[in-house]
Design a protein around this nucleic acid. Structure first.
Lengths: 356, 356
DNA sequence: CTGTTAGCGCCTTCAG
DNA sequence: CTGAAGGCGCTAACAG
């Protein structure tokens, strides 16, 4: 019924081994033989049996990309770039095509582990894990063990946009400078003259959230606004939520009710910032005349909204591409296995000096 | 080195076959035996070899979801929902877990075919193809053949948000009522009193684009604005682009330059509508006082932008979920294999009666 | 309910 | 440069 490599061999009047060799292209074969084989493949409409091939070779063409939320462009952009890079590298086994595939964890640690197991089961060639890490010791340990096992089994493990993990469970890590970005953004606001700055943070248990917030407070402290008897109560000016627009909206209303004298709001990311803008506008405040707003990431829409959003640009595309190349082994890991990717402050129309 | 099923069998003092049976859960096994096996699995930290298992069983746990653009929430929402539905169904082989995986074609027909081949190679259990179809006869033929081959090989093929294909190459089709939506939107504008309506269309060669535009013109024609000596030149009031914000921006500027007397703009989708709004605002027009704008899809941001966007809501989440269930065989295909999913007109703040 | 026996389709030494 | 042979790890009949 289904055509196998043996059928192709018979038609091309060569041995199965030869067919295998031309298909994998990793062994010298006479040009004329190759042509004959390729023609037979075509005529028979032969498709390699992946499982059989993976079983025999003990590796597969699968590359998994794990994301927190596939409906969020932050992940979509990285995943797309990684997938492109992987597709472009070509030259793998069996026609040079890797199957780069994205898995949506929905932010659930269990599903993260499940997907990793599934990928391990498939003997994936590589795994790219994106997004901030959960700061739960139990999960970190489980994750570390699982990743170490993958690495042991020959799977390349790349962390993208995520802090390094302890030990050598991982092939390479591309970390974002979330702390630095948080600091720069707040420094920018400070230099504009703001002194009452609210912060709409992400979910508490994520490294991304904490690092961005740390950077923010670092800047505040450096400006003498961090502690001391008449320093503002930082916790009161911080509201946690999720990385969604509606969360930004709610949190901003809360912030406003806690301190109506706010002259600026920093959001955990651009999406959250959009929600913040909506809440502010609804409260009758004009941006940036009455209040400034800053985001983080520089998602595509950020330059386009009105007013255009001041943010800290993370090179998501580049990071994804690099992660993809690393996953393919097309690029050597950075020294120490860890590279920190810096972003860039984009001061746009949503921030201005406070009203005097 | 790596632990195999035989190792587990030895440790649990049963035969390999028994281990296989408890792992797959599709065969009666004594509870005490099962426990012993499960314990051994745990102690040995055993992970099933997917390729071996797929080879022997001639099927795999892989389910592919093809999308045009992973960075676009339109696809992200459907893909995420499908992935959830597939994960929730459980009860597959080997622990009941399917590996639901999304593949990003970037809108390229070649990559679509490539991914399908890769999935076929892996003997995928099912494939969900989302997004509008390309209207190129050569590609349609190639695609039909490839899908038929997948179906023949036992892979369930589900079309989601895409018109039906000729023949029986496909297991089930979930089509969106793009034409009906396009008509409803324009009828709404017409009933408000608009007579000069511009249309920002998507890429010419996609069914989604054409159906939405067809609906629009259908409504115009029904209102007596379609043809005739003093009917407006519909082609002049239509500009094609891509499904992006910037495309909407450019196209709207073009539209405005072609006919400054426009009182309404209908966009191919919400993202495009956002770009249209930006262009309109930049031209000094206020929405909806000077000009009305309508989108399509009802993406999450659409209710939140200012002014909130009138649009035609497509139940993306529901469609994705249903596609996922169909892919798992957890739901029987609709009669005839095709179900048309209707949406709902959402008249919001971006449309109003034209200035008199 | 459980063990035994054959392969699934391909890759990979080893010879030639 | 090409052929022959063995086995990758698991599942699916069969028996019992």
């Amino acid at each position: 019924m289904t055509v196998t490599l043996a059928d192709v061999a018979a038609r091309a009047r060569v041995s199965p081994a030869t067919v295998s060799r031309v298909l994998n292209g990793n062994y010298p074969v006479a040009a004329s033989t190759r042509d004959r084989v390729l023609r037979a493949v075509d005529e028979l409409d032969y498709v390699l049996n992946g499982p059989a091939s993976s079983l025999a070779a003990a590796t597969s063409d699968l590359v998994g990309i794990l994301v927190d939320d596939i409906a969020d462009p932050f992940f979509g952009i990285m995943a797309g770039a990684a997938q492109n890079a992987i597709g472009d590298c070509g030259a793998g086994r069996a026609g040079g095509e890797k199957l780069a595939v994205v898995c949506n964890t929905g932010g659930s640690p269990e599903r993260e582990l499940t997907y990793l197991t599934l990928l391990q089961r498939q003997r994936a060639a590589a795994v790219v894990v994106t997004g901030g890490a959960l700061e739960d010791p139990a999960h970190i340990e489980a994750l570390t063990k699982k990743l170490a096992k993958l690495t042991d089994a020959g799977t390349r493990v790349i962390l993208c946009g995520r802090p390094p993990m302890p030990g050598d469970a991982v092939t390479a890590t591309l970390a974002f400078d979330n702390r630095g970005g948080g600091r720069r953004l707040t420094e920018h606001l400070l230099s504009l003259g703001h002194r009452h700055i609210g912060y709409v943070a992400g979910p508490t248990e994520r490294t991304t959230t904490r690092h961005r917030l740390d950077g923010h407070r670092e800047a505040l402290t450096a400006a003498g606004l961090g502690t001391g008897p008449d320093a503002p109560d930082l916790d009161r000016l911080t509201v946690h939520g999720s990385y969604t627009r509606s969360s930004g909206y709610e949190a901003t209303r809360e912030l406003l009710s806690r301190d109506p004298s706010l002259t600026a709001v920093v959001a955990a990311n651009d999406t959250v910032a959009l929600g913040a803008c909506a809440a502010l506008r609804e409260a009758g405040l004009s941006i940036p005349d009455d209040i400034s707003v800053a985001g983080f990431d520089d998602l595509p829409f950020s330059v386009d909204v009105v007013p255009s959003l001041t943010t800290y640009r993370l090179p998501l595309q580049e990071a994804g591409t690099r992660a993809g190349r690393l996953a393919m082994g097309a690029e050597v890991p950075p020294p120490g296995g860890v590279a920190t990717i810096r972003g860039e402050l984009l001061a746009r129309a949503s921030t201005a000096a406070p009203r005097s």
